[in-house]
Amino acid sequence: MANSKVKIFRYADTQYPKMWEKEAQIIEDIRASHLDQALQIYRCSENTLVLPSGRKWQATQDVVKALSDDGWSVLSRRSGGAPVPQTAGMLNVSHFYLWPEYSAYSVKQAYECLCHALTLFFESLGINVQPHATAHSFCDGDYNLNVDGQKIVGTAQRVLTVRKNRRLVLAQACILMSGDMQNVVRLRSI
């Protein structure tokens, strides 16, 4: 991309709803041609369970109270998938980019590009990761990154049409860095 407009946004400790506002602004900046791509890196300061849209996982009063009693807030997002816990021990990386103009969009290829970049990053740190589904993990998917069979990265993507039918890919990775994973695992029982 000649004269590409690129920006990195970093947020050390933030609340999850604020990230949706920041994400929406980045998308608008790409739509308006102020940016061609962006990298957003953030960590949430409070425990939040983010529920997907649909009827399978509802934020009922009982669920919200049980989670609140356990120190968690609950939010619902507009996309599908499964519930995703957010804690200060998780680093979120979102890459916003325009899909190549003369190439048909491919969900598989977009995931493979994200996993390849992350795999190279972990290899540079001497960590061998394998992309595959992870039995019994939260928000399981075919493009988790695993070390010795344990999930350390969950991935997701969202695609929007912008700029004369160009595809905007929002590729996301949630990297499990530290924290009380037993507290996260316990969410499965609520």
Rank of each mutant, 00 (worst) to 15 (best):
G80K: 03
N3M: 12
T87I: 12
P100T: 05
Q37I: 01
A104T: 14
S45Q: 11
R77F: 11
A104K: 14
Q109D: 14
I30D: 00
K56E: 13
L39T: 03
N3D: 14
M19D: 01
G81S: 07
G71V: 10
P100F: 07
L39H: 06
F96T: 00
I26N: 00
R78D: 13
K22D: 01
A110G: 03
A32C: 09
R78T: 12
I30Y: 02
V6S: 13
S103Y: 12
I8P: 04
P52D: 00
A66F: 01
P85Q: 01
W72P: 06
K18P: 02
K22S: 03
A66W: 00
V74T: 07
E101F: 10
S106R: 02
R77C: 08
V64S: 06
D36F: 07
G71H: 04
A24G: 06
S53Q: 13
T119H: 08
M19T: 15
I8T: 15
D13V: 13
L51A: 03
I26F: 06
L91E: 08
Q15E: 12
F122W: 13
A88Y: 09
V93K: 03
R78V: 11
H116S: 14
D29H: 06
C44N: 13
D69R: 08
K22Y: 08
A38Y: 02
E46D: 05
Y11R: 11
H95F: 09
S4I: 12
A104P: 14
T119R: 06
V107H: 10
S33L: 09
P52W: 05
V93F: 05
Q58P: 06
M90L: 08
T14D: 00
A24C: 01
Y102L: 10
T119C: 04
I8A: 11
Q109C: 10
S103R: 15
K56L: 12
R55K: 14
F121P: 02
H34N: 10
R77N: 01
V84Q: 03
R31G: 01
E23L: 04
I8M: 06
A59S: 11
H34D: 02
V50K: 01
A12Q: 15
R31F: 01
L114Y: 05
A12R: 15
Y105V: 04
C115K: 00
W99G: 02
I26D: 03
E46N: 10
E28N: 10
Y16N: 02
L75E: 13
C115I: 09
M19R: 06
D13L: 13
F121N: 03
L91H: 05
K22M: 08
K18E: 09
T60S: 13
L49F: 11
Q61F: 10
E112D: 12
E21V: 07
R10D: 07
K56F: 12
L49C: 05
S33K: 12
V93I: 15
E123T: 15
Y11H: 14
W72I: 08
L75Y: 10
Q61W: 06
